[in-house]
Structure formats: structure tokens, C-alpha cells
Simulated scan of single mutants.
Amino acid sequence: MTPTTMTQLPIPSHFDPRTVGEVWRVPYQQRAIEAESWSKRMGLKPAAKDKTRICLMAIDVQNTFCIPDFELFVGGRSGKGAIEDNVRLCEFIYRNLGVLTEIAPTMDTHTAMQIFHPMFWVNDAGEHPTPAATMITAEDVKKGVWKVNPAVAYSLGRGNYMALQNHALHYVEKLSAEGKYPLIVWPYHSMLGGIGHALVSAVEEAMFFHNIARHSQTGFEIKGGNPLTENYSVLRPEVMDGADGRPIAQKNTRFIQKLLDFDYVLIAGQAKSHCVAWTIDDLLTEIQAQDPSLTRKVYLLEDCTSPVVIPGVIDFTDQAEAAFQRFAAAGMHIVKSTDPLDSWPNLEIKG
């Protein structure tokens, strides 16, 4: 087989798995020169010539989730989850460079004043909720345990505090009615313009290398900027309407259709229990509405994702595993990145 079919490629010498848990500058020009040379030596063709089109969606592989001591490091039960996942993800990209048509990283993108950040809420003492340890329920809002911080009304509600308070109650009631997680107050994270927002350096380097070697623009997808709703899934926010019934957000219809137009969609990233699970769930909903047989084109890289685990506080491992089993029962494939693609079920690449 040629490199453009199933053959796994060697990993370029610049990749050092020991640096995957660190932040550093990618030497773009040097890597671009190396990638062009690599492409010629390996006989790679431009992605535009792929007869079988494969998209790798890498969900929120950002410093904020993947680097120890950053805001929301996803350690899983091992304590090293995201680092180990990203070593495998980088190796997967390099080994399968010749068949990955496009890589689409999603980017969780936030500002300080958002409904899931501490400053949005206060209690009667004027205190903000403790991040990562506070869930706000409809009962909490009704009883006034937590209220919208009046100080944010200037920036978020055009000075209309009551409208924001009404939205807050509507929001948590909607989450409960739709069977979603309660509103969790998270630490400030994925802050737009900050280091935490950036892709993990080693992953960014691998994606850039793919971009140059295959002449395939990396397809960044931004999510999470709406201050009045969470946005675990890149395909739709948690709540799409306000207390008055008017829309405040909408599904990412363009990206949904883009994914479904590929022959195969591979999914990795963080966190398995939240943004990954929610994105897959929304994709499954769209597939079932269009053509349930399309679930067979989706592959979940189970060794490139980990659940949220905060020792002594909360552990979402069981919920993540249950979600993945539900996706498999619906027809999606759970696979390992370390296995050759020709061992994956129902995946055929035309040479």
C-alpha cells in the first residue's frame, strides 16, 4: 500500500513526547520547511486529491485543559490523563498524516463575565461561589442562595438587572428540564487572549506540520463566547433561548453539515465527560434526524480523551463511560489511536 492509503508513517524526529505537558513556542518556519521535505520523501499527496475524505476533530486540546497547574487540567483518574492522551494524539496525527484530509480543532473561548464564572454570581454576603465546587440549581436561584451579581448588568444586560436575574432562573430551570448537568461554576478558563486559550504546543505543532505537508488548512472552530449560556458542545450551546422565548444562540449548522460531508469523522480531545461527550451527543442527534446509518462513519479515539476528575470533589468517569457505551450502541465505533486504521471496523480508504 502507498502512504496515501493505510500505511503508517514514521514519527518525525522533532517530536519529543517529554514536552507534551509543557508550553513552548512552535518554530513555524523551520517546521514548514521540514514538512514540505517530509511530504516529498513520504510521497504524500495534497489533501484535495484524497478519494476518501477523513476529518479529525480534536476537541478543546488547549493549555487550560491539558497542562498541569493550568485552570482545568483534565487528569482523569490517573492524574496524567490529558498529557498521555495528547502524546497519543500527536503520534496518531504523524503516523496517519497521509490519510487525514483535515484536522478541525475546537477552541473553548471565554471572557470573565459568563454565566459559569464566579463573578456572575453573588450571595447575600456579596461573596462569589467557589469555582469547581459549586453547582447552582433552580432551587438555589429561587431561594436567593445565589443571585446574579448586579455589577455585571452594566456589561451584560444594558443595565437591566432584573432581565439578567430572570434569565438566570430560566437558564437553570431549562438545564434541569432537559436532563443536563446542573450549572457548574468553573474557574476562569480558556480566556480569550490568554495562554490557557492556546492549543497545547506539541499538538499545535503536529497540526501545523499536517497543514503544510498535506496543503490542508487547519479548520479551527470557536465556541463558548456567549455570556449567557454554557457551550460544552461545539455544535450547539446548552440553552438557546432566553426567558422571553427569544433565541440567544443557535446550532452550528454549518459545522454540523461540514462534518457529515466527510466520509469518516474521528473524534478526540477533552474532556470526555463534558465537551467531548456533549459534542458527540449533539452529532448523534443530528445524524439520527438525517440518516441513522451515518453513525458508522464516526470513530471515537478512546485513548485520546479523559474525563473530569477533581480528587475529593467530583469524578465524572462513570458518566463518561456510560455516554461512550451509548454512542457505541447507536453505531459509532470506539477505537484506539495506537491501532492501525486498517484494523478499525468498517473503515476503507480508496487509494
Rank of each mutant, 00 (worst) to 15 (best):
L9S: 01
I11Y: 03
P12R: 01
H14N: 12
T19W: 02
G21N: 10
P27E: 08
Q30M: 14
E34N: 01
A35D: 10
E36W: 11
S39T: 05
R41P: 07
G43P: 09
L44F: 03
A47M: 03
A48S: 14
A48K: 13
T52E: 01
R53S: 03
R53G: 07
C55H: 02
V61Q: 14
Q62M: 09
F65V: 12
D69M: 09
K80A: 12
A82H: 01
A82K: 02
E91D: 10
E91H: 02
F92H: 05
I93F: 03
N96L: 04
T101M: 07
E102I: 07
P105A: 05
D108G: 08
T109R: 11
M113Q: 12
M119R: 13
W121P: 02
G126K: 00
E127S: 04
T130V: 15
A132M: 11
T137M: 04
T137E: 02
N149V: 14
N149Y: 10
P150I: 02
V152M: 03
A153W: 00
A153T: 02
S155C: 08
G157L: 06
Y161E: 12
A163R: 06
A168Y: 06
Y171L: 08
E173K: 01
K174Y: 13
E178T: 15
G179F: 07
P182F: 00
P182R: 02
I184N: 13
G193A: 03
H197D: 01
N211L: 07
I212R: 08
I212E: 11
R214L: 01
F220K: 06
I222V: 13
L228K: 00
E230F: 10
E230W: 08
N231Q: 14
Y232C: 04
L235D: 15
V239I: 15
G245R: 03
P247Y: 02
A249Y: 05
N252W: 06
D263H: 08
G269M: 03
G269L: 02
K272G: 11
W278S: 15
L284F: 07
E286F: 09
P292V: 02
R296S: 14
K297P: 10
V298R: 01
V308C: 12
I310E: 06
I314H: 08
F316T: 00
A330R: 07
N346A: 12
E348R: 12
G351V: 09
